[in-house]
Nucleic acid binder design. Structure first.
Length: 958
DNA sequence: CGTTTCACG
DNA sequence: GACGTACGTGAAACGT
């Protein structure tokens, strides 16, 4: 933590600064420092609750600075206002800068106080940025023959670097002179503004020239001297894209240059002489530090000489804010104000049953409530409940802390270890809330309900079976998959125009992160109750849109029902044989050591095989193997396709590297990664299925991802065999056969393919016979392989080039195969074209079941990006249609199994496969039940088919 | 933190 | 005339 790393500050700073031979001005970029300190340091609060982390960081820095770098002159420079002369040049300048976070706002004033307490001049001026004033003072001081040090890491200040002017990074304590600028911008300091003019700056909204970044800009400026030289020569530039961009956006570049160029002629708020360094007045400085509770600083500066009972905080943090009682009138949903009318904030912290009762009554009266839980972990399986928030109307929400401990001790901030805040016991709160949360007459609205339901249903968290439920994340996903993300913060900004407090702001990040249960109650309430409030408002706004958007059935009958199904699958987990994984890992290690030896020998020297960069240099620079291609970053490509090609030409090294890479991948990702995820309580791994991340309606799986467990090679299959059934059980795997191709036959209505599926024939052989004009018995393996490749390629929107490279044939030949394909199956060509134009016109395509899938980039001007979007549009209905079919099977499955009296548990879904754990005696009956559900879930123009197997482990079940 | 590679469907 | 080139995911390692 920064507080403990701070170098000691000795009392010398209180003495007169030593006279330097040469005048030296230190200019501290106060504004830049404040933001960095705020984000870099963990949250800290004064005893009265005022946040002071940035103040502490600033004070500590200034104290250190005055000790180490005695100077003749010093000032701290601040931004005075948001609006400056740059806004007149370009109205978008810094337009997207969010307001300062609420925890930072009160610290600005304190930092000016700190500066004054050190007897250092504060400099600011309306209409100018701190950077301009710094530039102006630097020039003025240099004019007097002095040295200037600017304490800042802001790259915008690098243009000021010259022999008499240097920057100093206050956090890294690293000087920034010409070489550092050259490294950052690729040009000397006097050309920095020209580079910035071209490259722009997204954080400040400086536009620059589209498509040109720092690298390109530096190369251009080096070649043409400066911006005007470049713009004059623009028509002669060879790269067409770059040329067009420079010509079209010349004026934008000129404006950008004016925006980034600091105004060294800015009027000085004080004459330079007034910035002369003066020693602090000890009394005033001590008073300030004491007020903030910075005891360690007081001590280090020798300002705490006397015992100081009077410096102890006068008040302990107040955890129990007086709670205004609820207005007696019940909320009226119909008459409720528009979702964005009520203000956010002003939420109540509930610490006793009497205060909770009116909220429960209000929720009952309303019939709908927002609900959110706070826990000590993102992992629902281990998460311990630390609080519950409920919202009964927009702007009316409360937080019920249940497991909050004391905030983390911080020697500087608090005099004595604080006690845990007063709060309701979990048992008491659960007793009061359970009837409400299980009340069928009260709808509970959550965002990502699966998580909260998983937490609340666990016995140690009260065993609450929340119902009925709506989920705003899924409501949004049902209508707008692929259009944007569906996290609460994003939806709130999008639909409510409100940026909620982020989790990271409340808990801090990285090493400084504290568990939510240690967050002070006022901050916890502001965050947690707001989430329930936002959730309820989103529901009011989005739920009514489902029906007109034709997404109500999808949401209610598929997505919402998936919540409980997936919750049970995640809770169930799947058993993994850790000992077997360890044996596999040992074997892989030995083989890797052997391979590594051989590879280094073949290479003629040792290198890191895991580094694509080093490998590329070995293969193509040193060994001069043919066929190397550089990627866009200039590095040699070394992926499996490249190495495979080299290996087939008889080179020994690439083959060994391929083998090594496979083992390295399997070992790190699966053997070690998976072993680390085994829950010691049940020796099972519990994945987290994400319901709203894919653009196609598929699920995804994380921590661990159980949807990409190896199977294709023997080494990989060993890992899959480490997934086992409990004793007395087997694993049963049920795969949809060719589901996407069945959807192709259905959607494009292809008679021959429909016929093949109806008769249960091999679909790729049928395709081969059709497009190559062969009799069914003349289709050989090669013809079938080619037909299979093209069948899959079609679903992916493949080009002739792509098919050619997959099949290793000339593009012209690929072209004629594709032509034959489309002339045999004209409906498919028609369908592909229809999907592209649908996407272009509406922005989305529909799955066969009516789910809208939004296609990002379909209107893009760049050909490559638009091409990607068109292929995505072609693929989406097939991938999405398949996803929907299996989801429908999944929501029916638990009931079907139960009605058949079967004890099988569904464990995993892998896009077209379901995996079950089944008692040994029930295998046949379960297979029959699963088959009936899966095949009966949709009536297409072709039959659906499920292929079912079982075994002691996942490998054998296939 | 972005890039590269590779595991799956 | 150049560029990119098969869809959708998530995890690990490298190197800046």
């Amino acid at each position: 933590m920064a507080t403990t790393e701070a170098a000691s500050v000795t009392p010398e700073i209180l003495a007169e600064p030593p006279k330097e031979a040469e005048p030296h001005l230190i200019l501290v970029d106060g504004s830049g420092y404040i933001f960095r300190a705020f984000h870099a340091l963990p949250p800290m609060n004064r005893p009265d609750g005022t946040p002071v982390n940035a103040v502490f960081g600033f004070t500590n820095m200034l104290a250190q600075f005055l000790t180490k770098h005695a100077s003749s002159h010093i000032a701290v420079v601040f931004d005075a206002s948001r609006v400056t002369f740059r806004n007149a040049i370009y109205d978008q300048y810094k337009a997207h800068r969010p307001e300062a976070p609420p925890e930072l706002a009160p610290q600005f004033g304190l930092i000016r106080e700190a500066t004054a307490a050190f007897n250092v001049a504060c400099v600011e001026r309306e209409g100018f940025e701190a950077d301009d004033l710094i530039a102006a003072y630097a020039r003025a001081f240099e004019g007097k023959g002095g040295q200037v040090t600017i304490v800042s890491s802001d790259k915008d200040l690098m243009q000021l670097v010259r022999p008499g002017v240097q920057l100093l990074d206050p956090i890294k304590q690293k000087p920034i002179r010409e070489p550092e600028v050259l490294e950052k911008f690729g040009v000397s300091p006097d050309k920095v503004v020209d580079v910035q003019a071209l490259a722009g700056d997204s954080t400040d909204n400086v536009p620059g020239v589209p498509g040109i970044g720092i690298k390109t800009a530096a190369a251009l400026i080096t070649e043409y001297g400066d911006l005007e030289g470049l713009l004059a020569a623009a028509p002669q530039i060879k790269q067409p894209k770059r040329r067009e961009a420079l010509i079209a956006h010349a004026e934008l570049a000129r404006i950008s240059k004016r925006l980034v160029t600091l105004d060294a002629a800015a009027p000085l708020p004080h004459p330079v002489d007034e910035l002369v360094a003066r020693p602090p007045e000890p009394g005033r400085l001590a008073g300030f530090l004491r007020e903030q509770g910075f005891r360690s600083l007081l001590h280090r500066m020798g300002l705490d000489g006397d015992a100081q009972p009077e410096t102890a905080p006068v008040s302990r943090p107040r955890y129990n804010a007086p709670s205004p009682s609820l207005a007696p009138a019940a909320p009226e949903p119909e008459a409720a104000p528009a979702a964005d009318a009520a203000p956010f904030g002003g939420y109540e912290t509930i610490t006793e049953a009497a205060a909770l009762a009116p909220w429960i009554a209000a929720a009952r009266e309303a019939g709908v409530m927002g609900l959110d839980t706070e826990t000590d972990s993102l992992d629902a399986l281990h998460a311990k409940l630390v609080g519950i928030s409920i919202a009964v109307a927009p702007g009316r929400a409360c937080y019920i802390p249940l497991g909050h401990g004391a905030p983390p001790g911080n020697g500087d901030m608090l005099q004595e270890a604080p006690a845990a805040p007063v709060q309701m016991s979990q048992a008491e709160a659960v007793a009061a809330l359970k009837p409400l949360l299980e009340d069928p007459a009260v709808l509970k609205v959550l965002h990502n309900a699966k998580y909260d339901l998983e937490v609340l249903c666990r016995a140690e968290n009260g065993g609450i079976a929340v119902a009925p439920v709506d989920d705003t994340m899924l409501i949004s996903y049902s209508m707008e998959a692929g259009r944007h993300g569906h996290g609460m913060d994003e939806l709130s900004a999008l639909h409510l125009g409100h940026q909620p407090i982020t989790y990271d702001t409340v808990t801090g990040t990285g090493r400084a992160r504290i568990p939510f249960g240690q967050v002070a109650l006022d901050k916890a309430t502001a965050y947690a109750a707001e989430d329930a409030d936002v959730t309820l408002r989103l529901w009011q706004l989005l739920k009514p849109r489902l029906r007109p958007d034709h997404a109500l059935a999808l949401y209610e009958q598929v997505e919402r029902r998936m919540v409980a199904v997936l919750r049970d699958m995640e809770l169930a987990g799947i058993k993994v044989d850790g000992a077997e994984l360890a044996r596999i890992g040992e074997d892989f290690s030995q083989r890797m050591v052997e391979l590594e030896k051989q590879i280094h020998e073949l290479a003629g020297r040792a290198f890191n095989i895991g580094s694509p960069k080093q490998l590329g240099e070995i293969l193509f620079d040193e060994q001069k193997l043919p066929g190397g291609k550089r990627g866009k970053a200039g590095a040699w490509g070394t992926d499996a396709a490249v190495l495979e090609e080299l290996a087939t030409r008889g080179h020994a090294l690439p083959r060994r590297v391929l083998d090594w890479r496979q083992l390295a991948k399997l070992k790190s990702t699966y053997v070690e990664g998976l072993a680390a995820q085994i829950d010691p309580r049940d020796r099972r791994v519990h994945t987290d299925f994400s319901m709203a991340v894919t653009s196609t309606g598929r699920l995804s799986s994380t921590e661990p991802n159980l949807q990409n467990i190896p199977i294709r090679t023997e080494e990989g299959a060993r890992i899959r065999r480490a997934f086992v059934a409990e004793p007395g059980h087997v694993l049963l795997a049920a795969d949809y056969s060719q589901i996407e191709l069945r959807l192709l036959a259905h959607l494009a209505d292809v008679p021959s393919l429909r016929d093949a599926f109806a008769k249960g024939e091999d679909i790729h052989s049928r395709t081969a016979a059709d497009i190559f004009g062969l009799a069914p018995d003349k289709v050989d393996r090669e013809a079938r392989r080619r037909a299979k490749t093209i069948n899959f390629g079609i679903i992916y929107g493949m080009s002739a080039f792509g098919l050619a490279s997959r099949l290793g044939i000339p593009p012209a030949e690929a072209r004629s195969i594709i032509d034959a394909y489309f002339s045999q199956y004209p409906g498919i060509l028609e369908e592909m074209e229809r999907l592209k134009s649908e996407a272009r016109e509406k922005g989305y395509v529909l799955t066969p079941f009516g789910r809208k899938l939004w296609i990002d980039g379909i209107q893009a001007k760049e050909q490559a990006r638009r091409g990607n979007a068109e292929r995505a549009a072609i693929n989406a209905p097939f991938q999405g249609g398949a996803a929907e079919i299996i989801k429908r099977a999944m929501v029916r499955m638990p009931r079907a199994l139960q009605e058949a009296g079967l004890k099988a548990r569904m464990l995993l879904q892998v896009h077209d496969e379901l995996l079950f754990e089944v008692p040994e005696g029930e295998v046949e009956a379960t297979a029959e039940c699963v088959r009936t559900v899966m095949e009966g879930v949709a009536a297409l123009r072709v039959p659906l088919k499920a292929e079912i197997g079982h075994g002691a482990n996942w490998g054998e079940a296939h």
